[in-house]
């Protein structure tokens, strides 16, 4: 196997660190939200590598604890939209005709809606909340996934192996799931990676607007929003969560690209 380049290696390290924080953040920094009002807001210094915010909370600890909601939420969005996209795109691409027309007009309709605006409205009307934000994003992301999957299926459908399967008189369901789907999986996965980065930023935006995670919770978007007024007292309180979002999103994109290239190479080496 070819070794990943330096950019990919760095991205993989970033993702490993983020993943650890997301999964074990509660264990690593159990008292992340502990306030120390006597300290108040401080610049980075001994004991507080990134300083504290105005409630005296350690910014680094908040960052580690905040990975969980930010990253797992984005993961839920990309997984959920990939699942929905596959369930719609696979039959649309394989069966064609009316099923395809229906699915694609639905996708067109959904894509004509400004995503983040809808999320803001829905979350605002229904009172916000973390899981509602995730659900809204899944619904908004799914049409793009359905289109990508459909496109990949269309490319496979005309291959002789699919026709050979049809000559075995196999059911459409079996051909779709057992024959076509494994061949489009690399495309779907690569797309899920890109969605993850997008979902990370979108969820943070919603939290920033106060529509995702409850105020005061450790979440990158939320922390950024909470601390945006303290840019002069301790810039790191706002900049650090922002950087975390950007770096993680970039790392996921780099790794996603790398995986797609690898899948492509394997396909060509066939």
């Amino acid at each position: 196997m070819r070794l990943p380049g330096p950019a990919v290696a760095v991205a993989l390290l970033v993702l490993a660190a983020t993943g650890t924080a997301a999964l074990f953040g509660g264990l690593l920094v159990p008292d992340a939200t502990a306030q120390d009002l006597t300290t108040g807001i401080t610049f980075p210094g001994p004991g507080h590598p990134l300083g504290t915010d105005e409630l005296g909370r350690d910014v680094l600890r908040l960052l580690v604890a905040g990975a969980s909601t930010a990253v797992l939420g984005a993961l839920a969005v990309s997984a959920g939209s990939m699942l929905t996209g596959n369930l719609i795109g696979l039959p649309a691409g394989y069966l064609g005709g009316r099923a395809d027309a229906l699915a694609m007009r639905w996708a067109d309709l959904m894509l004509s809606i400004p995503a983040l605006l809808v999320a803001v409205v829905v979350a605002g009307v229904m009172g916000g909340g973390y899981w509602l934000a995730i659900l809204v994003l899944i619904v908004l992301f799914a049409p793009t996934d359905a289109r990508v999957v459909r496109g990949a299926v269309l490319e496979q459908r005309s291959r002789a192996y699919v026709e050979a399967a049809r000559l075995q008189n196999l059911t459409s369901w079996r051909i779709m799931t057992r024959h076509v789907w494994p061949n489009i999986l690399p495309v779907a996965l690569a797309n899920a990676f890109l969605n993850f980065a997008y979902a990370l930023v979108s969820l943070a935006s919603l939290s920033f607007l106060g529509l995702g995670v409850a105020a005061g919770s450790p979440d990158w978007g939320r922390t950024l929003s909470d601390n945006k007024g303290q840019l002069f007292a301790n810039p790191w309180a706002a900049v650090a969560p922002g950087l975390a979002i950007i770096i993680t999103a970039a790392a996921v994109t780099v790794v996603g690209d790398w995986l797609q290239e690898r899948a492509e190479r394997r396909r060509l080496a066939r």
């Binding site: 002789a160 061949n183 066939r270």
Partner: peptide, 14 residues
Amino acid sequence: MVFQDPYSSLNPVR
């Protein structure tokens, strides 16, 4: 039926 191209007529993942 047996197809022309032996490369595309077999599913690469099976």
